[in-house]
Design a protein around this nucleic acid. Structure first.
Lengths: 212, 212
DNA sequence: AATACTTGTTCTCTTTCTGTTCTTGATATA
DNA sequence: TATATCAAGAACAGAAAGAGAACAAGTATT
């Protein structure tokens, strides 16, 4: 599978198509099916491309076997290794303040957050406005890393959306008949809501601050 | 790829364009596509420039093959190696506590700290023991990112080595006849030293914490 | 097992696309 | 003025791509 083998446009296009649609076919497609799917009228034309992809090592030789168009094992390996380092980082989506909805950034940017302060699951970053969590060492301007999830355990710090309008970062205590959001600020009081009023948008997993 | 070939303005411009827009083309662009993208009307004009870039070693020779304009493998390598100088991350070297020297880790590990909480200059990471900076939101177990330097401005938070034995993280105030290290903890008092006793090992530029 | 059907393979022919070369003229640069 | 740089366009040759026919090997049906 040396890359001295340069694919032509159509060959690349065909390869992309096969890769993207490999799940769509319960079994590997016939040439005719592939033709139809790609808008070609002649198997012969397609076959030439297939042959080149075989030579290039992307798909297995089909040797007259029917429904033989399948990607090479080697290629699949190579492909996952290529696909992995696509991590562009954790999205920094906006600012969160007590009492107002999340201010979304017009253009999301991505930060390279170390694994130590995030999780394997989808995370996003918010910048903190206000000082409702100041006693816990979360200050105005800090970034918080939030794991996206819709439930939480009591005592966790969560991003909570209240009445579908106001987002806030608070400790959460959930009881059958009420949900309490507790700030970490001795000048502020816990807020009590009906459980239906509060929607959890994520759980705090990390925090960071710049002193520059 | 010797630079004895000095590129003309237009050639350089073309090269820059290709480099910047290589993601925009799903496949290497044809001369026509490049013409259109650059606002030219004639392939012939473009071709001469391409030819020079080939001679200069930036672009693969296309030898009548219709596989479009693609950058040389050598050039790409050289380019990424220039752009990303093997950043293995910021070294996490140990823990810092008030009153004892830095506990060095036996094997240093590296973290991928985002640019937002470090600087361009050499930085390292310490884990905080104790609560001498608790009023400033730096808690036990937090990581602090330190820019390595031997001087600081008054009011900055520094890693200070006292009498060449004890390292500590404190605010610093330097006067001609004494240096004061101020904790951010209302239960602790500022400590006063002769300037010779205190050696600055770095300045705080960032902090991060895990809630996992 | 014999049959018809499906599907992969090979071939030729044709059309379209794309890199290459030239010539001409315009504009800048020394 | 002389020179280098650049753009435009025409013309050409080779490459890429598609259509279709004919064949052969596999698969399904009876």
């Amino acid at each position: 599978m040396n890359n001295i083998y340069h694919l032509t446009r159509k060959q690349q296009q065909l390869l992309d198509f096969i890769i993207e649609n490999q799940d769509r076919f319960p079994q590997p497609p016939t040439l005719d099916e592939l033709c139809f799917a790609m808008g070609l009228k002649s198997r012969g034309s397609l076959h030439k491309h297939i042959q080149e992809l075989i030579n290039a090592g992307y798909i297995e030789a089909l040797n007259r076997k029917q429904r033989g168009v399948r990607l090479t094992a080697q290629y699949l390996e190579q492909n996952v290794s290529l696909a992995e380092p696509e991590q562009q980082g954790t999205p920094f989506v906006g600012a969160i303040a007590a009492g107002t909805p999340i201010e979304a950034l017009e253009n999301i940017c991505y930060m390279n957050v170390p694994d130590e302060i995030k999780t394997d699951k989808p995370c996003y970053i918010l910048q903190v406005k206000g000082d409702s969590m100041i006693d816990d060492g979360i200050f105005e301007g800090d970034w918080v890393i939030i794991e996206q999830q819709s439930h939480a355990r009591n005592g966790q710090i969560v991003v909570a959306l209240i009445d579908k309008t106001d987002a806030t970062l608070k400790y959460i205590e959930q009881y059958p008949h009420e949900t309490v959001l507790v700030p970490a600020n001795k000048n502020m009081s816990p807020m009590r809501f009906h459980p239906q009023q509060v929607e959890i948008q994520g759980v705090l997993v990390g925090q960071m601050r710049s002193y520059k």
